[in-house]
Design a protein around this nucleic acid. Structure first.
Lengths: 92, 92
DNA sequence: GCGTCCAATGCTGTCTCGGCATCGAGCCCA
DNA sequence: TGGGCTCGATGCCGAGACAGCATTGGACGC
């Protein structure tokens, strides 16, 4: 599990297409597809339903999405907090 | 920035020694040291003060530590939630 | 001053990972 | 019903990342 995988997951969840998410992340479709497969493998569950039109979130995927967004937001907050402290303010 | 780096940071912060943290993470000292340096480089600030006895957290490091723990906890929660959903319950 | 303990760094082999090309499945339309 | 289109999945390969070994450099204690 890596932050990259989590970012990929969120992008695919929001776009509903691997290819489109890939473009958004400045990546190509194959690695994106593998990120999702790796995540599903690690979690032991399918997160998406593969349809002929793209990817649709399964319940497990929806649950994971909520956490994924929180993780990415927390990472973002961490960076900003440290930058804030460095700039001279205590922003914890 | 990766979850591995964050885990390394937390371990070093808690142990106060790179070498000891390395043992705890089943790693050797050099990569651990590089994780911290990479993190500091990415954040643009020193997170630790290097003393002859080991590593002591600087204010920026303490601030980052709080976020780091939350990130790791959230990742853990995500895994457990998905496993819970998969097991048949909605545990979001 | 010498030995010890710490983190940092040079180097190398391996393994990961992204991209290209291609495949396989499912749908639409003629 | 068959050809083309649109998906995601997979085989393969080359570049880059990364861990470990060996060593360095600095600070303290005796």
């Amino acid at each position: 599990m890596s932050l990259t995988h989590i970012q990929s997951f969120v992008a695919v969840a929001e776009e509903g297409h691997v290819g489109r998410a890939a473009r958004r992340l400045h990546l190509t479709q194959p690695p994106l597809s593998r990120h999702i497969l790796a995540l599903e493998d690690e979690l032991g569950t399918r997160l998406f339903e593969r349809t002929p039109r793209g990817m649709r979130l399964l319940p497990a995927g929806e649950a994971f999405l909520r956490h994924a967004r929180r993780i990415l937001a927390e990472v973002d907050a961490a960076v900003h907090t440290v930058r804030g402290v460095t700039a001279g303010r205590q922003g914890a």
